[in-house]
Amino acid sequence: MLVDNSRENYLFVLRSPCVSIVAMPSHYPERVVQWASKRSIQAIWSRNPGGRALLFIHGYGGNPVGTWADFHELLPTEAKAAPCDLIFYDYDGLRADMTASAEIFRQFLDSLFGHPAPLINTSLPVSAARPVEFGYQEIIIIGHSLGAVIARLAILQANDAGKAWTANLKLVLFAPAHMGANVVALALSVISGLPFLMLAAGVWRFQSPLIDQLTRDSAELRTLGEETRKVLAEGKCHCLVAKTVVHAEHEKIVSNVKFCSDPPAIPFDGDHFSVCKPNLGFPDPLNVVLAIL
């Protein structure tokens, strides 16, 4: 046996008070699910679904699951999360236009709130198929960095289109980029797979519309703020007010200035990347999400 750090035993001891002893995990393994042509998600479906989904959307240059590690392992150990589907949304967070990404995300939300059973059942064995009438009563969007902006834009678009399902959404945001971000250096570490390149100076001009769109006071972010204020002033779309906002104490990428009517942010020890990554020594991100359930 090589190196025993007993993480799993530790996990068991830590979580045993709230985990019923089950022989099988509460969820099926992670899988890629294609929801439209050339568009996919990573999904961890509940074995006993309760009509609720946690929908994670990563940030600039992020990875659908990697951005949120170890949510995908820790949530299935929590009794409160057992009936929730865990969906890790994927999009081109490196080079795609922000508004177009939001339109695509809105389409995805539309399909989830429509009749999701056929989509889910394409990735489950027949014996575990959901009934055709299965639907989501609530979807909690958990956004990181740029993901927070995409989510807000998608909700505004849905509101314009008169989509009733916006009433069934909640927002939890980690290090949101809705007040601006400097993302140039991030591209280097993302593309190369080498994390230390994050510290490389931004003399290298990476070609991406997001760099300008996420600059503090960009036209896109100004419009986002104005539209949000307007919709909230009309008494519509309360989900645009985040349930929880988390800021990183050592943030160097996004601006931590408060956005519209959001509640005061909860500061977590950590930086832009670690703030949304729970682990056994840092369960705070997990607890923030569990508190919403």
């Binding site: 068991f12 002893i21 022989a23 995990p25 393994p29 899988r31 890629v32 995908h72 392992e73």
Partner: peptide, 21 residues
């Protein structure tokens, strides 16, 4: 074997499904 090792196996499947593409 118990649910902990099953959970780890499922995590392995996650790693594998990302690695193979």
């Amino acid at each position: 074997p118990d649910y902990r090792v099953h959970a780890l196996f499922q995590s392995f499947l996650s790693i594998e499904s990302r690695q193979r593409i």
